[in-house]
Computed example of a mutant assay.
Amino acid sequence: MEALTEHRPVNGPVVYGFLRLVRVSAARQSALRASLAEYCRTHELQLSGVFTDRPATSDPTSAAFTGLLDVLALPDVYGVIAPALSHLGPKPIAAERTRRIEATGARLLLARQPRAITRPSAPRREPAQRRPGPVRVLDAES
């Protein structure tokens, strides 16, 4: 009798990481890479490499991003993992890069989902307190 699938070494879908590291310490870089690896481990994904975009640029076609697009064209590549959407660049660049990633048929996975914008709740009101005061007595006889 063969072992269950959970007991066999099975490779998960192949993903590639993408980090934008502009003026980031070595410790922060290591932590970000570790967070991608941990996300992939817990979601049964195979992290095959991480592309790192270092220069601050206003062009969506950096060398790292072009390399990422090249590997996304390989067969059996599931998608791209990034810590957050901001790692694709400022909003206009991130939007263009997202479009280009999705155009390849790959999925864009974010380890940290964007926070939902919540409105501040109304201040909680304490229940009305009864204060001792004069007692009005009504005449029961009419």
Rank of each mutant, 00 (worst) to 15 (best):
M1V: 15
M1G: 15
T5P: 12
E6M: 14
E6Y: 14
H7Y: 15
H7E: 15
H7F: 15
P9S: 03
V10P: 08
N11L: 08
P13Y: 10
V22A: 03
R23I: 00
A26D: 14
R28T: 03
R33T: 00
S35H: 01
L36S: 01
A37K: 07
A37F: 07
A37S: 09
Y39P: 00
Y39D: 00
R41I: 03
R41A: 05
L45N: 01
L45K: 02
Q46R: 06
Q46Y: 07
L47D: 06
G49D: 11
R54L: 02
P55S: 07
A56S: 12
T57C: 06
S58W: 02
D59Y: 09
S62L: 14
S62T: 12
T66S: 10
G67N: 10
G67T: 04
V71A: 07
V77Y: 05
V77N: 02
V77H: 03
Y78V: 05
G79E: 06
I81R: 00
A82G: 07
A84C: 06
E96I: 11
T98F: 02
E102L: 14
E102T: 11
A103S: 08
T104P: 04
R107E: 11
A111E: 06
P114I: 02
R115A: 13
A116I: 12
I117N: 12
T118Q: 04
T118L: 03
T118R: 04
P120S: 12
A122C: 13
R125P: 02
E126C: 06
Q129F: 09
R131Q: 15
G133H: 12
P134L: 12
L138V: 15
S142E: 12
